[in-house]
Amino acid sequence: MTRRTAYPRVYFELVFIGFASILGMGLIGAFLPILAKDLDPTGNLVGLVVSAWFLARVFIEIPSGFISDRIGRRRLFVLGIALSAVGSFLCAVAPSIYFLIAGRAIWGFGVALFFLNNTAILFDLFDPAVRGRAIGTFQGIEMVGSLIGGPIGGVLAGVIGYNTVFYFTSALTGLSLVLVFTLHDLKGLGGRAPVALERISLRAALSSLTQWPIIVVCLICLTRMLIMNGLMSTVFQLYLYENLGFGVTLIGIIVGARTAGTIVATLASGHLSDRFGRKRIILLGLVLEAPCLYAYTLVSPFETVLLIGFVDALGAGLTWTTLTVLLSDIVQPEYRGVALGFYRTFMDVGGILGPIIFMAIATALSPYIAFIVGALLLLSMAGLAMTS
């Protein structure tokens, strides 16, 4: 595949498909637990509706990455979009909590295939000199879909009902599938393996994952996901509500400010890492975010928490995208798929364990201790990053 230093048309086609996928996922974020509770009044299986998304992915990331390296990106890319459409449709017609769990699992499986191969295509497509800004812009635009998806989905759910919103998601995903087969540039993209088939063996692929720099990147990814899903997506909202006494409206504003900060940093991180180096930007993000987590335990005025939230998200955004780009610089081209699978497995494990670990800390000790643990973990990752 020819390496690019400028954005080709196919890049914008990939951006649109990624945006549509994230928008569809965001549409149901405002009401998914409520729908699950309606289907399961006992509440026993509500958590499984959320965790099924990650549980379906965690065991297939590395195998799908290896297969992508062997046969090319396109087949799994298309399969991922198709499964996402099927999964969201099953959620739309779900008559029971079990159908909803199955739909979420299939959807999560498809999203894993799609985003792994989509990212691998971007790795293959761009020269390292501009890869950071290409991926940063891509992920920043995706996050805009997440930002606007929640409010739109909430409004739609109030007007047409929870299940019907899933039809919109399925239609967005179906449109993406049609574009993959009709747009000329996408039809020929990633159809072949990036290197000759005979050069890739399972043993060699797995051996490539033992490089210390790759392990460091994956450990930082794991830590970031533990904090993002466990602390900032679970404990944080409860802390604002129960400890600081903020209402849902104020919490929504703070969450929105954090999302805005993440988008700004994500869009900027690629340009910054191309210019100043990946590790410097990762260190900057970690060192910026860590004191913000501790600062949450020291202040209570809404305006101050809002400002800290924005700065905290800047640090998280700088780290997240740059980690992915650094991985592409480290790994050999023929092993990019399996390396991405390895990286995303750590991400999925963090997504599963994060809420369990940080809620346990917050419940057994206090939310203040949970924030301090998060800050210390980030500082330890900054130290680890300096060893690679």
Score class of each variant (00 low, 15 high):
238 L>T: 08
321 T>S: 13
327 L>D: 13
175 L>S: 07
48 L>F: 15
178 V>K: 00
372 I>R: 07
118 N>P: 00
18 G>K: 02
189 L>Q: 04
261 G>S: 09
334 E>D: 13
149 G>K: 01
231 L>W: 12
335 Y>E: 07
201 S>F: 13
9 R>C: 00
59 F>P: 05
281 I>K: 04
57 R>Q: 15
115 F>N: 04
180 V>A: 07
359 M>W: 10
22 I>T: 02
246 F>H: 08
308 I>Q: 10
262 T>R: 07
277 G>R: 13
124 D>E: 11
293 L>N: 10
60 I>H: 08
299 V>N: 09
381 M>F: 08
214 I>Y: 01
21 S>V: 01
58 V>L: 06
108 G>I: 05
279 K>P: 04
32 L>Q: 13
1 M>D: 09
184 H>E: 15
229 N>A: 07
297 T>K: 11
17 I>H: 00
186 L>C: 12
81 I>D: 00
112 A>L: 02
55 L>S: 03
188 G>P: 01
311 V>A: 01
7 Y>E: 06
64 S>Y: 02
309 G>L: 11
330 I>F: 03
220 I>F: 10
14 L>R: 06
160 I>L: 13
296 Y>N: 07
327 L>W: 10
274 D>V: 03
150 G>S: 14
199 R>H: 13
210 T>F: 14
92 A>N: 08
340 L>I: 15
48 L>P: 02
169 T>H: 00
320 W>R: 00
162 Y>A: 03
297 T>C: 12
269 S>L: 06
367 P>V: 10
29 G>E: 11
154 G>R: 09
300 S>P: 02
124 D>Q: 07
294 Y>Q: 00
349 V>M: 13
268 A>I: 12
43 G>T: 03
172 L>K: 01
180 V>M: 14
226 L>G: 07
40 D>T: 05
362 A>G: 08
367 P>I: 12
365 L>K: 11
242 E>M: 07
106 I>V: 15
